[in-house]
Design a protein around this nucleic acid. Structure first.
Length: 338
RNA sequence: CCGGGUUUAGCUCAGCCUGGUAGAGCAGCCGACUGUAGAUCGGCUUGCCCCCCGUUCAAAUCGGGGAACCCGGACCA
């Protein structure tokens, strides 16, 4: 697999291909980031972007993980002290998940976002950005709540973070795309208070997993079923077993006409195969014995043809997810024991 | 600052006028059927009715006070 392929695999959107191809020519030492609001326990959505970061490390990138404490504060996630505490737990879990400690820099947002230059730049963006624009950028992140002033400042700061962290590439879930587009449109026109480079950076967007139980919409960490670092092996078995999984890549819409995905296949594609060269599906002799797959496509083909039964696929998915989660689960147990 | 509206199950809401300690839809859970899930059947759970005070034998319901949120007006002479 060449560098560009590795950098962009499983990405639903690359903005722009040309710019990322240029990075792929010499990825060594280039800087990429993802920003996360601190959260006590990583869920599979966090892990999905982390999987992409691991790809990028493999390609030679330096990874910056922004522990966005100020953003979490703006999004009403608790007192600043509480947020800082969960941020530390989050860092440990990312390392347990497989980020290379020598190639990963963890940065607290508050370590630079309160500097005078940064604050003035934020105000410059406030002047140049319409309320509508900022609100639209935030809509996906914000959820159903009524917009607060903090909600429109939030995406402006994200646009600036990419500048202040001296990045070459920004990564995020597809829900971050409007924020990234705001960065690309607004930042290049800035006067800017600092010595950083105010050029627009390319962006890479990872998929958003479908809801585990229905295949409709996106998996939510706040409601419904999600896979997280604190799940026991049994929890994962139960959750995966309950997942929506028709024997097809492309399920029919539900009765209300909502598009549906196959979340079991999505997790194989986006979480399991990027981290394991081969996947063994253990299967009782009566159903034909074990199956081995080297890539996602052949597994999905077998599910569609009926060669691989969904129940067996689920068993294998649960095992591999458990393997990915186990180190983080141990870290959490140690932290909680203190 | 002024005015109007809203607040009841996880969600959307009905009930309030005409007091008798709560309902629907959706969601969720459990079973049956499928070697998974879904669909389909069958069954089940859930409530500081925003808070406080009062009236009453009895308050989600009436009266008073307060809170949160939504919307609007005014201020710009």
């Amino acid at each position: 697999m060449d560098a560009y392929e590795l950098i962009t695999r499983n990405a639903t959107e690359v903005v722009t291909e040309e710019e990322v191809r240029a990075l792929a020519e010499d990825p060594e030492g280039k800087r990429v980031y993802v920003g996360y609001e601190p959260s006590g326990v990583l869920h599979i959505g966090h892990m999905l972007t982390a999987t992409k970061l691991i790809d990028l490390q493999e390609a030679g990138f330096e990874v910056v993980v922004l522990l966005a404490d100020v953003h979490a504060y703006l999004n009403d996630k608790g007192t600043f002290a509480e947020i800082r505490e969960t941020a530390e737990r989050m860092r440990d879990q990312f390392l347990a998940y497989g980020l290379d400690p020598d190639a990963t820099e963890f940065v607290y947002g508050s370590s630079f976002q309160l500097d005078e230059e940064y604050v003035l730049d934020t105000h410059e963006l406030e002047v140049s950005t319409t309320l509508n624009r900022a609100q639209r950028a935030m809509a996906e992140i914000q959820g159903g709540e009524t917009a607060k002033v903090s909600h429109v400042v939030y995406p402006l700061m994200q646009a600036l973070d990419i500048v202040y962290l001296d990045l070459d590439l920004a990564v995020g879930g597809l829900d971050q795309r409007k924020v990234h587009m705001l960065h690309r449109e607004q930042v290049p026109g800035m006067d800017g208070e600092s010595d950083h480079d105010y050029e627009a950076r390319p962006c890479l967007h990872t998929p958003i997993l479908a809801d585990l139980d229905t295949g409709v919409g996106k998996m939510s960490s706040s409601s419904g079923t999600t896979i997280s670092m604190e799940d026991s092996a049994d929890d994962i078995d139960d959750k995966i077993n309950g997942a929506f999984c028709p024997p097809t890549r492309d399920p029919e819409p539900d009765d209300d006409g909502n598009e549906r995905e196959n979340p079991v296949l999505e997790m194989f594609e986006y979480s399991v195969f990027p981290r394991f060269d081969t996947v063994v599906v253990e299967r009782p002799e009566q159903y034909g014995g074990d199956l081995t797959y080297d890539d996602y496509a052949s597994l999905a083909d077998d599910l569609e043809s009926g060669e691989l039964h969904p129940a067996d696929a689920k068993g294998a998915l649960a095992d591999y997810l458990n393997e990915l989660i186990a180190p983080g689960r141990e870290v959490l147990a140690e932290l909680d024991a203190e």
